[in-house]
Design a protein around this nucleic acid. Structure first.
Lengths: 133, 133
DNA sequence: CAGTATCCTTATGGATACTG
DNA sequence: CAGTATCCATAAGGATACTG
């Protein structure tokens, strides 16, 4: 189901929300923009990589993986990925709370793009190194 | 050659510049981030699509293609793509000035990723339509 | 543990005017 | 035509304190 809830909170990713709105209103130029709006975000592709390749992670696991990410950023990136149906959020009725994030089927289907980004980026960085030698 | 010129101008894409700096200092977690930093930008993938599929375009051609883009945005997106070696900027000694933008070889090599983004996005949008029926 | 809420600084991006 | 430069409104994102 298209999640029409528009987050008017302070942390709204404005561009992403705009494209979500345009999607619902069938007013978008191009499907590429939708994909980009899902992947754009300082930490999203690395989060997806870890969830896709290594399996489910808890909130605190991800914090340990990315020591430089702020609490607020990690929260918002995960919420947006969940809203877009890429990531599943499982809350266990434990005390203290336990929340696990994992890839959905839709999420796994976007992983090849992330992998291509990795391959292309690696090659390009190698190329740049050669040229500066 | 890695372009080390750091644009301290007002329109600097901060995240992109940060990753460029980290790249030069060999301080990056992952090559995926570099690729994403190149493609991230409200209009970049659509610009790349048109240049890659339809061939070279003049500045004013692109303005006609995207009536909603501001002059300043188009300028900055093209400058960033040029800095990253994705797009070539050819200035003709004409009066009035003529400037033509085209894909570099490196740019063409990133096009498959843009195409995958298009394919994935189209399928996902179709899927979402089905689910809301 | 896994979040929200608030405050505040920095970055983004539109509108407009000017230039070779 | 193809840009720069400046001003200004809005959005993103860090730090900190609080909560179930």
């Amino acid at each position: 189901m298209i999640n029409i809830i528009k987050d008017d909170g302070e942390m709204a990713d404005h561009l992403r929300q705009e494209i979500r709105t345009r999607l619902i209103e069938k007013d978008y130029h191009c499907a590429k923009e939708y994909t980009l709006s899902i992947l754009s975000g300082k930490w999203k592709v690395v989060i997806l990589w870890h969830l896709g390749v290594e399996g489910p992670h808890r909130f605190s696991d991800l914090q340990k993986l990315f020591p430089k990410i702020s609490h607020k950023m990690l929260t918002s990136q995960l919420r947006e990925l969940t809203e877009d149906g890429i990531v599943h959020r499982e809350v266990y009725p434990d005390v203290p709370p336990k929340v696990e994030y994992s890839m959905t089927t839709v999420g796994m289907s976007i992983l090849p793009i992330v992998e291509m980004m990795y391959t292309w980026g690696s090659k390009r960085i190698e190329q740049l190194k050669q040229e500066t030698q």
